[in-house]
Computed example of a mutant assay.
Amino acid sequence: MSKFEFIATATFGLESVVAKELRNLGYNDLKIENAKVTFKADLFAICRCNLWLRSADRLLIKMGEFSAVTFEELFEGTKALPWENMLPIDANFPVQGKAVKSKLMSVPDCQAIVKKAIVERLKTKYKKEWFEEDGPVFPIEVSLLKDIAVLTIDTSGPGLHKRGYRELASQAPLKETLAAALVQISYWNANRLLIDPLCGSGTIPIEAAMIGKNMAPGINRSFICEKWPWLEDRLWKDARMEAEDSIKRDGDIKILGSDIDGRVLRIARHNATLAGVDDCVFFQKLPVEELRSSKKYGCIICNPPYGQRLGERWEVEELYRNMGKVFKEFDTWSIYVLTAHEGFERLFGRKASKKRKLYNGRIKVDYYQFFGPPPPFQN
């Protein structure tokens, strides 16, 4: 089976997490860059990566990369690529674009030129002057960074954070891909108790449970490339069978989520049921001040409010002080907090063992990591 070049896109700061996920899937020919990981693999990778990648945003097929400082160079560079190998005669291929520090700053013009160049290429292949585009969808993107154009085809469709379990969400939900990354960055494993004391609609506990059960995050959704005629059904059948067979169904995982809002907890329970992890994720209505545990070792992972609105700032800062007092009792636990508040450590009363810069949507945040001692006899 021939090799393709793929791009797994990622939020800034999560590239190494995505690279680790790809290595775990057996893909080692990786190139890590800002907001993406490029790698080479066969067709089966389209199915496996869409099903298994937890922290990536999308999986793209890289069609080509070339210098383009004029519209003519963009046209000729696009036309030179083998689009006929990917696009059937009835393909619907909308073109989106983005440009950063490029001489070709008119994105609509770039999109139109790329579209025209692809049509001209397909005319030669299919001996047609007009394409109805009433078949399967192949979303194309032209990305211009400085003087370099990269042409890709999106295999995912809706972003990979769309797991299919979150029909309902709280007011400011954490993206599933970021929640999965927070768990993977932590030292949590399925043998330890995990608590999210500010769980909202349950994204962190649910993603942790899926990791603990080795459940492919895309197992309950479909992808735009499943309708592509040259991607054989047997590949999807094999990939989904592999995902089903990989689920750990007999583990003793215990994950707790709590919140003071009973309404969002009802949403969290509903989401956990849809995700298929309601057997190991438990939710309760509880203020942070009342958090307790008899377990000697465990992990706390949470995404508290940031207090970015002026009226909320005092209330959030008081929450951080209370978290510091309560979490002090968990002195043998590892604690992980995501927030955009720059004074968090001062309010919390402790300096983090490690701090990692990330992005929650467009908000620059820090992931504060307070490491506890490892449990005895831990492998």
Rank of each mutant, 00 (worst) to 15 (best):
I247R: 10
A268V: 09
R292L: 01
Y320M: 04
S106W: 04
R234S: 14
R362K: 15
E226K: 12
L310K: 14
E5N: 12
A352R: 01
F131Q: 11
I267R: 05
V107L: 10
A239P: 12
R313K: 15
G202F: 13
A209K: 01
K101F: 10
E207Y: 08
W333V: 07
D278W: 08
L168P: 00
E65F: 03
P173N: 00
M323C: 07
F377V: 09
I61A: 12
C47W: 13
P305G: 13
R309I: 07
N189M: 08
S106P: 03
A239D: 10
K285D: 02
A208Q: 05
H341P: 03
A209H: 12
P205H: 01
I260Q: 11
E120Y: 03
L338M: 06
K115S: 10
Q111I: 14
T177S: 15
K354E: 15
V326F: 14
R321E: 11
I7W: 11
G26S: 05
F371V: 07
N28A: 06
K285M: 13
G251W: 06
T273A: 14
V316W: 01
W333F: 04
K175A: 13
E232P: 02
I224K: 09
E345L: 06
D279C: 03
G262S: 09
D331S: 14
L144M: 12
N379V: 15
N220I: 13
I363A: 12
V281S: 06
G212T: 07
V264G: 07
C49A: 14
P373Q: 02
A181H: 06
R292W: 06
C47S: 15
K328C: 04
P376V: 08
S170V: 08
A91R: 04
F6E: 03
K295A: 15
Y359E: 01
N85E: 14
V288K: 05
S106R: 04
W333Q: 04
S156R: 11
L235H: 15
